[in-house]
Design a protein around this nucleic acid. Structure first.
Length: 197
DNA sequence: GCAGGGATGAACT
DNA sequence: GTTCATCCCTGCA
């Protein structure tokens, strides 16, 4: 089983994988950008979809790590997660925002899908980035090591300063500081007021 | 059958 | 900066 991708061991707990994903480039069919915002979710805390146990919707999170979990939120937005931990545990990292890269990585395609010029808002939010990358239910429970997914390691020459803080859009376990962002990024779904990691 | 949701965009103060 | 309608699917009574 492949659990290490882009230099990250996905069998680790989600709150350890999530900060390591900041700065990694995510591409879907060659379209994407640098990850600048993530959130960790785990079976053992009530904000997680897997807190209630395995269901037809969340079964992918109970599968092997290094795969995708895509779900529909509020009936119209898709959200992309990366599965973590050992198989059967139930944990994942929600990808919340990307920094769009040069047109070599499909900037034009993202603009067309979003019908929006502003780079800043192209991928600033889990629903938005799925729209920009064309992620839907078809992308649920797929290995991140294979097409259409591609993960490229962080640029070692580029320093990444990170902040950790409370997660967004949840009503339970709101105090857990499991949201991770690149400090100072212009491409976040919401500004971060948290502590330096 | 029904309540509520890991969100967004527009319309506001 | 803030609230508000809206999307429809999921899980549980």
């Amino acid at each position: 089983m492949i659990t290490t991708l882009a230099g990250i061991d996905f069998s680790a707990p989600a709150h350890e994988v999530a900060p390591q994903l900041i700065g990694v480039t995510l591409l879907v069919n060659g379209v994407g950008g640098r990850i600048v915002e993530t959130e960790a979710y785990d079976r053992e805390e009530p904000a997680s979809h897997c807190f209630i146990g395995e269901t037809p919707r969340n079964f992918a999170m109970f599968g092997p790590p290094g795969r995708s979990y895509v779900y529909q939120s509020h009936g119209l937005h898709w959200c992309l997660n990366f599965v973590c931990r050992e198989p059967g545990h139930g944990a994942g990292v929600l990808i919340r925002a990307l920094e769009p890269l040069a047109d070599a990585h499909g900037l034009a395609a993202m603009r067309a899908r979003r019908q929006l010029e502003d780079e800043r808002l192209l991928c600033a939010g889990p629903g938005r980035l799925c729209q920009a990358l064309g992620v839907t239910r078809q992308h649920n429970n797929l290995p991140l090591s294979e097409a259409p997914f591609l993960l490229l390691p962080r640029d070692p020459a580029r320093e990444v300063a990170m902040l950790a803080g409370p997660r967004i859009g949840i009503s339970k376990a709101v105090d857990l500081p499991w949201r991770f962002v690149e400090a100072g990024s212009r491409f976040l779904s919401k500004p971060m007021r948290g502590s330096v990691l």
